[in-house]
Design a binder for these strands. Sequence first.
DNA 1: CGGCATCCAACTAGATACTG
DNA 2: CAGTATCTAGTTGGATGCCG
Lengths: 143, 143
Amino acid sequence: MEEGTSNSPSDCCSTDRDYDIHQWDARGECEVRQILDRIADKWSLLVIALLEKRTLRFTELRKSIDGISQRMLTTTLRQLERDGLIERTVYPVVPPRVDYALTELGCTLHDTIKALVVWTETNQAKIIAARRRYDERASEKLW
Amino acid sequence: MEEGTSNSPSDCCSTDRDYDIHQWDARGECEVRQILDRIADKWSLLVIALLEKRTLRFTELRKSIDGISQRMLTTTLRQLERDGLIERTVYPVVPPRVDYALTELGCTLHDTIKALVVWTETNQAKIIAARRRYDERASEKLW
DNA sequence: CGGCATCCAACTAGATACTG
DNA sequence: CAGTATCTAGTTGGATGCCG
């Protein structure tokens, strides 16, 4: 399963560091993939992006993330907290107040997430154009 | 909706470029979020990571990505092709041969994805430890 | 080999109602 | 305010069979 390392290099991609996204341990366990799946999650990305600017309360997050249900926000926040990416602070007041903030680990993650978001913003026009081309070709073939 | 720029800076995060992950246009349309959701997809990440090394055939991809069904691989490849991130080459031979390769656009995306994967590999021990702490606390509270 | 079509099981996630 | 609990609709995705 390790013979794949004898590949020819691509022509346009930098391969300075060799990483193994598929380095699972024969028993079907692959922590990296599991973690990636979690942090690359739709809602997690948004939460981390928002918390980078400043600490936010539950309701502030919900209002900022259009389309998220309170259930999904709760779930997402719990997972991020469990992974040590955000910190949850409860103030014993009435009405209750809970603040969410990025941890140091969460901040380092944000840097790479930001790169992904910036890439998307930068290239969204290209992608939309590619989609249009693809769809046009597809509809041509139907005739 | 744009007053959020007057936030206090975080203490540990670099905010050199201001990006708006939540820049949807009031009608509920948010291309960036839609695209992000697509490229941050579980299988897409793996496909892009694998294709960076070299061009691969359908079956090679399927064997390399443990757990993916042929259906999901097909779906993922079509979406990536539609978005202009990978290129599909069909050779009119028997039996059929189809090669998949990253486009230039796909290569630039790979760079940021790679950063994400490397971050995950680098920090997976911390995350696993955080999870253990969290779970221990949770089970303590039950007693 | 590299698909597509169909069917169906499982999980996801939204809506709603209720609570400390 | 910040959740939890429940129920259900919708989507995802796996299994299977067939085709060029």
